[in-house]
Each structure stands twice: as C-alpha cells, then as structure tokens.
Amino acid sequence: MIVADRKPLEEILNSIKDYKKIMLMGCGGCVTVCFSGGAKAVELLASQITMARKKDDSEIEIVQCTPERQCEYEFNDAFKDDLASVDAVLSTACGVGVQAMAVQFPKLITLPALNTKFMGYPVEHAVWEEKCAGCGDCVLGWTGGLCPIARCAKKLLNGPCGGSSNGVCEVDKDTECVWQLIYDRLKDLDKLENLTQVREPKDWRTSTNAGQRKIKFEEAML
C-alpha cells in the first residue's frame, strides 16, 4: 500500500489562506488504512482548520467528502456538484489522487494536504515501513524476499557495504541493514550461493529514470 503522512498544519493553512470555501476531500483507499487521509482524518483536519481560521478572524466554509478511491475518476465524479461551488480542493489523498483530481477538474486548484512517502506495510500497529521502490525489475527472487533497492541507503546489489555493523545501517542507527537481513535469511534457507556471484549493473530504465511509466493490460482493454 501507499503510505502518506500529513503535512504540518501551518503549511496546509498557508496553502489555503486565499480561499473562503474549500472541499476537503479524503480517500477511502491506502491513506484510510494508514490513518492519514480517510474520513476520520478529514474530519479532524477540518476542525483544526476551522479553529485556526476562526482565531485569525477569517472564517472558512469546508465541505467534506471521502470518495472510495480518489485515484479513479468515477468515484470523484459523484461529488462534481459540490465541487462546482468551492474555491479550491484540499486533498488528503496520496499524490496519485491529487493528480487525478487536477486532471479531472482542470479549472479547480487541488492542493495536497499529505506528503506521500512510500510503498510499504505495517510492521506493527500504526507503524509502517518502506518495502518496495517500484523499480520495475523485481530482485526479491534471489534476495530472500527482502528488497535492497528500497531498503539499502546505497541501493547496493552486491552488499553489504563496510558500514554494516551489528545488523545496523551506518546511515541511521534505527535502520536495520537489509543486507545483513538478506544474508541471514539466505543462510537459513541454505541459499547463500545467491550471494556469491557478482550481480551485474541494474537496468534503471524500468525505474523512474526514463520518464513516466505506463502499463497496458491488453486483455482488459475496451
């Protein structure tokens, strides 16, 4: 899932300071699961904005809605009448949802209320960790299911580097060295031979280095 974090309130307030009526638009997808952008987060943010604006003697009208997924036009379409009456949209979707709104409603300004962080999963209640960088050429098959592209600060394919100590990454003492984990996992699986060959330089064209990526699922196309 996509994991996102709310922007500081100050930054959000500044981005909407010129507007008198906004749509605060959540998303029922990933950001609901990670607490940052679902209906509850929308309600909380709306009351924080309302209070702050009241204090500044500059009241604001906020319409709230939370489509099932802001990254699909058909779910946003249901709110088009409400959208016609607002000065701007403040979105608590991930960056994908914000862009869907910007394209779907080109005359409306859609502003992000979240910082989209990464693809990951909760490792314990309310704690998410990055797991996948979407590099487009998965290596998990030989790394024991642990991703060095997303998790190694140097994206090494022939790690660990000299900064791995006691299972911890030199860059941040709270970050495990993924290459230590890969080694341990492959040792347990009796697959250490996966690490003896020199892995060739990666083809980064499948990642973000060659511009926007696109996937067509031919069988399902209309």
Partner: peptide
C-alpha cells in the same frame, strides 16, 4: 538524457 547514448540503462 542517457536514453540517447550508449548506456540507456544507466541511472541518472
């Protein structure tokens, strides 16, 4: 862009 050269697979 590296796409035009001899290492189109390179990271920029």
């Amino acid at each position: 862009h590296q796409m035009f050269g001899i290492h189109p697979e390179a990271a920029n």
